[in-house]
Design a protein around this nucleic acid. Structure first.
Length: 946
RNA sequence: GCGCCUGUGGCGAAAUUGGUAUACGCGCCAGACUUAGGAUCUGGUGAAGCGAUUCGUGCAGGUUCGAGUCCUGUCAGGCGCACCA
């Protein structure tokens, strides 16, 4: 019987769906295992062969766990809100919901072809109201929470309000936008609106006036991780800094926990390191400097408190409010001119130019340690958003301060023995401190760091600063709060209305607040977000319903928020929803959460390192604080699959003509390389010139200059993308080879964590393997030829070897070597003409996670009623793997010379005797003395001579 | 600049974690069956040499009886962060 994969796959696909074989329920009698692949954004282009790589790896693991007796949850869904659908809507007027629906249908079709064991009854879509109800709910709970550092978790905001009413804000140790000073009396005298303003300073979801990344091209603000090199990740439009009122999530409150949590999870070092960098913890000190001749002071942050004796000037960020207070009348014109100049420099200029600029404020600060008066400058190399927006400059030991000092002729005072600062600053945190204070100079209480190591000096200075009340030890984080508003249509609406300019949450019982219809997806004429176009987008607090805008009276009917939530909102807790997707009373029921706990294996791309994977961890920690998620870290183990790149082909057109020259001849002419669709190119990169002429009208009368009668294309490895015509589509591969071959080949390509180009050429090897495996079960006439005879020793050895290898590879997800092992085993069994049922059944089970279709068919042909997915995973017997004799390499002084065969259980003495008795041995022994013989078990015997 | 990762045949990649380097697949070569082959099967395939042998894991050292693997330095490529004080 031929291996007819088309029939086999179609039949089993149907049966799996009809019998719902992948549906799972909580089952207390079996251990659970939760496998998750990052859900896709369903783009219009459909899946290419790169997308399923991670899904296949996860699916193999999920199926393996199922064979091992685990109750495996492996769901799938769609991250359905996003910019492309909205951009498409703006261009075509097609509603994003319609295109999204179409794209999802297409994705589903493609995913089904590949044979994943997803439980589709648990599918989620972020744009479904029943789903985003819980996104809105979580947002409301964040609004109604603050973060208490004393108890280390989120708390209800009412508790804070009560505390302020009783004791004021004094002594609060909570996450806040800025320190406030409110007494109980003041609180009592406040209006409702004023109190709301105070509370806004502490809420975990808050409305903040912040500098945001404004992208005019997209008409919205972006989060930091959505901006790279000053342009938007999506679309590549320029991004500028702008001060706007936006919803923010106080993710910075969780900075320390996000950092600590990394030590408890099994993620790759590189992703953990990326997150550590992004969180950017730095320990230092805040030191207060008085302004000379005035009753003012300001605070700076430094990690190098030990360099306090080398401070020769101070620098303020241009955006800092201190600039106004510290600028003297004489300097005001110069400072204002500078501020104006900085404002018009975009983020890109600022990074690319790296010009050293700045201006003197006219004021002087007093060094608290020495009493020296030092000038205060303004420069854009100091960031307003980090620390206090002001620094003490130590040009001798900081390259940025050094460049500034050299440009403006400010003094450089070295503080470390032997440091040469004539050409550049000395930044290493090592050496012995000197000059602190300089000889003959006074310092506060005679404080001196001279003779200490840098490390000791930092500690000593911090202690001194705290003792003398000059400042305090402080930990700073680079992690910024996440900006949570987008001026877009296609996203979750905020369940928020505005009364007296302050936001209020619509009642929880009224969730979800569904996205309204609009007739235009562009901003309104007054520049409001697209939701401003909705006719019915106001909240009636009496009736608790959405009503016509026309009825807004600000008495009982109020305007609703016009922004929507960003992409990461819906993807931040989806793994929890999969546990209990149809529950309308809870995001996840306690029972479901207790059973499934958290994701055991999470598979997805590393590009989400500073986006989704941080937001999701934050979101889960918050839900954990609420008691909704029982585990603090959502993803116990993370595997980042590599990207599959495309292999593009080029033709070379002679400039100004319609004549194309083959690769080997292109250097003779002035040519333009042009991407050519890879479907027009065959093996050896030979172009089908006729197909090329028909490809596009402008090439209809193309002429070709051939070499050896062929047109050879150039090639390059690039990102797989429609515009480069290098996309390979899984449907085509499946039509030609079957899904089992595709699965096997994607795994065989190399380690899943590695990026690699897609090369269709190798796939025949995997197809041949499957066909050979299939043929093991049939005789020449095509009849099933499996016997119940006892297996031979060799066959048992082959299958046990395979069992061991595949089982051990599973945990490492080292599937490429497993596939190789399958190939070896099958060719061994074929050579042995093995027909043993016992052996072949084991082979079928082992192969089933990799090739589910063909193994289902074989399992049934072998007479089993149950599906192979529930068959127990085979075990191996070490005794079967033992050799009777082993071949050892014999080396003299480390160089292998010949091999010997000895009994597997030979003692070292026997091995040594056999080795020395070998006919070739005397040749290498000649004239040398035997020092010792080292017998490495089962490997090699090394004879050491002198 | 700082941090992390990776360098092995013509190509994708293995290597029992310090023990016969290049498993497995692609490609290539030869043979078989064919009217035919971009089908199938069998064998060969790191380099040099007729050969025994010698040389071979980016480069240079080191530890070891023995190093792709460990250590030091260096070069190249990739990723992340980057006026973060």
């Amino acid at each position: 019987m031929d291996y007819n994969f088309t029939d086999i796959e179609a039949r089993w696909r149907k049966r799996w769906a009809d019998e719902k074989v992948y549906a799972v329920k909580e089952d207390a009698t079996r251990p659970k295992y939760y496998v998750l692949s990052m859900f896709p954004y369903p783009s219009g282009a459909g899946l290419h062969v790169g997308h399923p790589l991670g899904y296949i790896a996860a699916d193999i693991y999920a199926r393996y766990k199922r064979n091992r007796g685990y109750n495996v949850l492996q769901p799938m869904g769609y991250d359905a809100y996003g910019l492309p659908a909205e951009q498409y809507a703006i261009q075509t007027g097609q509603h994003p919901a319609v295109t999204t629906e179409q794209n999802i249908a297409r994705y589903r079709e493609q995913l089904d072809l590949i044979g994943f064991s997803f439980d589709w009854s648990r599918e989620v879509r972020t744009c479904a109201p029943r789903y985003y109800k819980w996104t809105q709910w979580a947002f409301q709970r964040m609004f109604n929470s603050f973060y208490c550092y004393n108890c280390g978790k989120a708390q209800p905001i009412d508790k804070l309000a009560a505390r302020i009413a009783q004791k004021g804000t004094a002594g609060l140790n909570v996450a806040q936008t800025q320190p406030l000073d409110v007494t109980p009396q003041q609180w009592a005298d406040m209006t409702e609106r004023e109190r709301q303003e105070v509370l806004m300073n502490y809420r975990l979801a808050y409305l903040g006036e912040t500098m945001v990344n404004w992208c005019a091209g997209l008409g919205t603000v972006l989060a930091n991780d959505e901006v790279v090199d000053g342009v938007s990740v999506r679309g590549g439009f320029p991004v500028e800094q702008k001060k706007m009122k936006q919803w923010c999530l106080r993710i910075s409150a969780y900075a320390q926990r996000l950092l600590d949590g990394l030590d408890t999870i099994d993620w790759s070092d590189s992703i953990k390191e990326t997150q550590r960098n992004w969180i950017g913890r730095s320990e230092g000190a805040e030191v207060t400097f008085k302004v000379a001749g005035r009753d003012e002071s300001f605070v700076i942050f430094t990690t190098r408190a030990d360099t306090i004796f080398g401070v020769t000037f101070m620098v303020l960020a241009p955006e800092s409010e201190l600039v106004q207070t510290l600028t003297t009348p004489e300097q005001k014109a110069a400072v204002d001119a500078y501020l104006e100049e900085v404002k018009h420099r975009t983020e890109l200029d600022r990074m690319a130019g790296k010009k050293v600029t700045g201006v003197f404020t006219g004021s002087y600060a007093v060094n608290p340690f020495t009493g020296d008066e030092i000038p205060v400058w303004v420069s854009d190399y100091v960031l307003a958003g980090y620390g206090t927006g002001a620094i003490m400059a130590v040009p001798a030991h900081d390259s940025r301060d050094y460049a500034f000092a050299r440009k403006f002729g400010l003094p450089v005072v070295p503080l470390i023995e032997g440091a040469d600062v004539t050409e550049e600053s000395f930044e290493a945190k090592e050496g012995i401190v000197t000059n602190s204070p300089a000889e003959g100079k006074q310092s506060l209480d005679g404080f001196s760091l001279n003779g200490l190591s840098v490390k000791e000096a930092i500690a000593a200075t911090k202690r001194f600063v705290e003792e003398k009340g000059l400042g305090r030890v402080k930990v700073n984080f680079r992690l910024r709060d996440a900006i949570f508003s987008r001026q877009r249509y296609w996203g979750e609406p905020f369940p928020v209305y505005y009364k007296d300019g302050m936001p209020y949450m619509i009642p929880e019982a009224c969730l979800p607040l569904t996205l309204p219809e609009v007739d235009k997806f562009l901003p309104t004429e007054t520049g409001e977000p697209p939701l401003g176009n909705a006719a019915k987008w106001a909240w009636d607090t009496a009736a608790n319903t959405v009503v016509e805008n026309a009825r807004i009276d600000n008495a009982t009917v109020f305007p609703l928020e016009l922004s929507t939530m960003p992409g990461f909102a819906g993807s931040s807790a989806y793994y929890l929803r999969y546990m209990d997707p149809h529950d309308d009373d809870a995001l996840v029921s306690p029972q479901a959460d207790q059973y499934w706990q958290a994701v055991d294996l999470y598979v997805g791309g590393s590009e989400h390192a500073t986006g989704h994977l941080i937001y999701s961890r934050f979101w889960n920690k918050f839900l954990h604080d609420l008691g909704v998620s029982c585990i603090e870290e959502p993803f116990a183990k993370l595997v980042n699959q590599g990207m599959i790149q495309g292999r593009s082909n080029f033709v070379y057109r002679i400039k100004g003509t319609n004549r194309f020259v083959s690769l080997g001849l292109k250097d003779k002419y002035d040519v333009t390389p042009i991407h050519v669709d890879i479907s027009l190119v065959g093996g050896g990169d030979v172009l089908d010139t006729e197909a090329f002429r028909q490809w596009r009208p402008e090439y209809a009368d193309a002429e070709f200059e051939l070499e050896d009668g062929k047109y050879v294309c150039g090639w390059a490895v690039e990102k797989m993308s429609k515009s480069m015509f290098n996309v390979s589509n899984p449907d085509n591969v499946i039509a030609k080879y079957g899904a089992d071959t595709l699965r096997l080949y994607e795994m065989f390509l190399g380690p899943i964590t590695q990026s690699k180009p897609w090369d269709q050429n190798g796939i025949d090897g995997c197809f041949r393997f499957l066909r050979r495996a299939w043929n093991l079960f049939f005789d020449k006439q095509g009849n099933l030829a499996v016997t119940d005879d006892a297996p031979t020793k060799e066959a048992l050895k082959s299958i046990h070897k395979l069992t061991k290898k595949v089982t051990e590879d599973m945990e490492e997800m080292s599937y490429n070597t497993s596939v190789a092992a399958f190939m070896i085993c099958v060719s061994e069994l074929a050579a042995q003409k093995c027909r043993s049922r016992e052996v072949l059944e084991r082979l079928v089970v082992l192969l089933s996670p990799f090739a589910p279709f063909v193994t289902c068919e074989l399992w049934q042909l072998l007479g089993h009623k149950e599906i192979v997915f529930d068959a127990p995973w085979p075990t191996w017997d070490e005794a079967c793997l033992k050799e009777d004799t082993v071949t050892l390499g014999v080396s003299f002084n480390g160089k292998t010379r010949f091999t010997i065969d000895v009994a597997a259980d030979a003692t070292p003495d026997e091995v040594q005797a056999t080795a020395l008795a070998h006919e070739a041995a005397p040749r290498y022994m000649e004239g040398k003395q035997l020092v010792k013989v080292i017998v490495v078990p089962r490997r090699i015997v090394n004879i050491v001579l002198k």
